[in-house]
């Protein structure tokens, strides 16, 4: 939950983590070093936001699969290097948008994907959707908007304020692990509009009970907003690709 007492407990946990990191690495976290780190990681998020913003354009300048891969790599890559490369990619996408160039023709069906994050190298659903002739324009996922849409406040001056800011940012994510998670439903509906999606695909990995539990609320809200929803529960295996392709293609034919 995200009550004040939960935030207090979480801040204490983050302080424990900071201590542990110092212990393991032998480095000391100072106001200066943390301030620089916050700025550095925020820059990474800003770069990813630029890619996302470019995808509101029709035609979409990049495939969902490529954008997903960039987001997945964000979890592993050296931060400044990654930020530099993603900004270069965003520059290219801006040029493509300005020139009206797309990965698929203008008017191609646009899909927003929401649900369980897809860890590298899982791009099964994006692959199925895009092979079926649509383009994935956004991910409301932890390998998507939840990863980069919010920044850590850069206003802190003392180490304490900065650690608090880090804790606050991470408690603010609309992940399904939080109870009462209305914010996620709002995000999905807002993103569907912003990205001019024709439909939403709600994905749950098998045994990821949290996203399966939220699936009904997401479906209801998106339908109320006037968009169709396809619910998919799947796993990492390839044995259901035939049936999934039929479902996704039929969904696109329905739009």
């Amino acid at each position: 939950m995200k009550r004040p007492e939960d935030l207090a407990m979480w801040k204490a946990e983050v302080r424990e983590l900071a201590k542990k990191v110092e212990e393991v690495t032998g480095n000391t976290i100072t106001a200066g070093s943390l301030s620089a780190a916050i700025k550095e990681v925020n820059d990474k998020r800003r770069a990813l936001q630029r890619i996302a913003a470019a995808c509101t354009a029709d035609p979409a300048p990049i495939s969902g699969k490529d954008r997903l891969l960039a987001t997945q790599v964000a979890f592993y890559d050296d931060v400044p290097r990654f930020t530099q490369m993603v900004n270069a990619l965003a520059d290219e996408l801006d040029q493509r948008v300005a020139a009206g160039e797309g990965v698929a023709p203008k008017g191609t069906k646009r899909i927003l994907v929401t649900g369980t994050p897809m860890a590298l190298p899982n791009w099964k659903i994006h692959d199925i959707i895009e092979k079926a002739g649509a383009v994935v324009v956004g991910e409301e996922m932890c390998t998507g908007s939840r990863y980069y849409q919010d920044l850590v406040s850069e206003d802190g001056t003392t180490l304490d304020e900065m650690i608090d800011a880090v804790a606050e940012k991470y408690l603010d994510i609309n992940c399904a692990c939080f109870t009462t998670n209305k914010g996620r439903i709002d995000d999905v509906v807002r993103m569907a509009k912003e990205y001019e999606a024709d439909g939403v695909i709600d994905l749950a990995l098998q045994f990821c009970g949290l996203y399966e539990m939220e699936s009904h609320g997401i479906e209801t809200a998106v339908r109320e907003a006037g968009l169709p929803v396809l619910k998919i529960t799947t796993d990492y295996s390839m044995e259901d690709v035939g049936q999934l392709s039929t479902r996704v293609e039929a969904f696109l034919e329905m739009l």
Partner: peptide, 11 residues
Amino acid sequence: GRVVDFEMNDK
């Protein structure tokens, strides 16, 4: 005969 909604078994 336009499809409004559908459900299909998984694998």
